[in-house]
Amino acid sequence: MKWKRFPLGPLWTNGYLLWDDDGVGFFVDPGGDPTDVFKWVEDNGIDVRTILLTHGHGDHIAGAAEMSKRLGSDVWIHREDENMLCDRDKNLSSNLGTECPPVEATGYLEEGVPLSVGSMDLQVIHTPGHTRGSCCVIVQDGNDRLLLAGDTLFARSIGRTDLPGSVPELMSGSLERVASLDDDLIVLPGHGPETDIGTERLENPFLS
């Protein structure tokens, strides 16, 4: 399994392209103009079959409609956040003053329901707090494993719970679940640098 980070949109949201040895992949959280992604995907022959949305905020979904149309990719999100895909007030893009074209979900992230893209297996962990439908996803391909954390967990911090649609009383339980994962599990967050669970358990004030 290989991956590449693409900072997209006005908040430089981390979008991630992940792909297997056969060049089959998926894209996580296209938060802005995906032109650079298109060029890289075409130059490297990656078949982007799915767009995975960790939650429904505009800075994570703004490029999803264009990417889905251009690449023919499915769009997966948790059902609790599906209503944010076509409502600029609910996805908060109206607050940012940015464009966020509506996009339809074609599949759903659901805990306990295994998913796969190419040779990569995906395990969904529903982690409400930042939004009701926020999810983290463990991706495994052979011996390679990593966690897509969205805006649930950052390096030394966590996602905000004071936004419209956030559920602060659920965040602590979600963080406890994430903190119980293996120390050496790489974490790819929605903003900021990558980290790992062991480091966050020791140094993140919200987990200690």
Rank of each mutant, 00 (worst) to 15 (best):
V28H: 10
C86R: 14
S134F: 03
C135N: 04
E111F: 05
S94F: 08
L85P: 09
G15I: 06
R79Q: 14
D33Q: 09
D29F: 05
P102M: 10
F6R: 05
P193I: 03
Y108Q: 03
C86K: 06
H57M: 12
K69S: 14
V167G: 00
S180E: 08
L11T: 14
V75Q: 04
L181V: 07
D184T: 07
T98N: 08
E104W: 03
I197Y: 14
G142M: 07
G45N: 11
E110F: 03
N91Q: 06
G23N: 08
G142W: 01
T35G: 07
I186A: 13
L147Y: 10
I138P: 01
G23A: 09
G97E: 06
P114H: 09
E111Y: 06
L207R: 12
P205L: 12
T54G: 06
Y16V: 13
E104S: 05
G97Q: 13
D87V: 02
W19N: 05
P128S: 08
D162K: 08
M1W: 00
D144K: 08
G112H: 14
L52G: 03
E80I: 02
E200A: 01
P30V: 05
I138L: 10
W40P: 04
L147S: 13
D182M: 08
D47M: 14
G45S: 14
G129I: 01
D29G: 12
D22P: 05
R5T: 00
D196H: 14
V28C: 13
L53D: 07
D87R: 03
